[in-house]
Simulated scan of single mutants.
Amino acid sequence: MKVVVIGGTGLIGSKVVAGLGEHGHEAVAAAPGTGVDTLTGEGLAEVLEGASVVVDVSNSPSFADDDVLHFFSTSTANLLKAEAEAGVAHHVALSVVGTDRLQESGYFRAKQVQEEQIRAAGTPYSIVHATQFFEFAKGLADGMTDGDTVRLPDARIQPMVSDDVAAAVARTAVGDPVNGVVEVGGPEVFRLEEFIRMGLTALNDPRTIVTDPQATYWGAELADDTLLPGPDADRAGTRFADWLARQK
């Protein structure tokens, strides 16, 4: 089976390509660096020739509201059009648990637009909703830092390692389209403060971490369970403490 992975040279995409290849599939990494640009449409027709499945794990290079909306709406429209012309049978996209509950954030509004475009396109599809990655604990802290203090909303999170995200995406790609959402999360639930504290402690980062009722998550207010997947979500196996121990 030929599977084209849009964003196939990035953190998740490169792991999806490797995993599919190990299982005997023809996995093709597509990105601007390989001559495929979903924003302009350059190279799409050529790379999609003979493809059965397209996996889109690309992300916007800028998270400014207008930029991220332009990226996801334009690249998704171009990709879906090219897929229809090429006869692709399954479109798989990586998105985020809680996207529809985070619409105060420009980034998540753009992801919601992407999901709506996929649903309306007519191509059989599967959308994988994953929780936050272990690798982004520091990035989350950086985005919520005020001086030397990290101010976090009072909410729970169920993070997972990027390897397990990629494995879930690859499994979905070789399965039948669900024409809906597949949710996946990590094996443990933390309070945001605990998750960030563990991540920064492992990096010997001295910032003070506090829970602040006024803090937002990329501009969105959180309820206690906004970032949590539903009860039927698949649970990945890698624990955060085990992953942190391997980083030393």
Rank of each mutant, 00 (worst) to 15 (best):
D100H: 12
L48D: 05
S62P: 10
G143F: 12
E135K: 06
D100F: 10
G122L: 11
A64R: 14
G98Q: 00
V47C: 10
R119T: 07
N59E: 09
V97C: 09
G43C: 05
V128K: 09
A137Y: 08
P124G: 15
T145V: 10
A121W: 00
S58T: 01
D66N: 11
E49P: 01
R101E: 10
H70N: 13
G41K: 02
N78G: 13
L69G: 11
V165Q: 06
V97T: 14
S52T: 12
G41M: 04
A64E: 15
A141H: 03
Q112I: 08
A167N: 09
L102N: 01
V174H: 11
A45H: 14
R151A: 13
A45F: 05
A166K: 07
D66Q: 15
P159Y: 06
V178W: 06
G122Q: 10
A120L: 10
N59C: 08
V161H: 13
L140P: 05
V169Q: 07
K81W: 00
T149Y: 08
F72M: 12
Q114A: 09
H90F: 05
Y107K: 04
A82C: 06
P124M: 12
A84W: 03
V161N: 12
S162E: 13
P159E: 13
I118H: 02
Q132E: 15
V169M: 09
I157E: 10
A64P: 07
G175Q: 13
A120T: 13
D148M: 11
T172E: 11
P61Q: 09
V97Q: 05
F134K: 08
L48R: 06
S126Y: 00
L69A: 13
L140F: 15
G98H: 00
F72N: 05
A120N: 12
A86S: 15
A64N: 14
D164F: 03
F72P: 03
F136D: 13
S162K: 09
L94F: 10
S95K: 07
A64Q: 15
G98S: 02
T76N: 04
V174K: 06
D154C: 05
L152V: 06
S126F: 00
D142H: 06
D154H: 08
A170K: 08
L48A: 13
E83W: 01
G50C: 07
G143L: 15
T123F: 01
G143H: 14
V169I: 15
E42N: 05
I157Y: 06
S105N: 05
E116M: 14
F63M: 15
P153I: 06
T76L: 04
A82V: 03
G147C: 11
T99A: 08
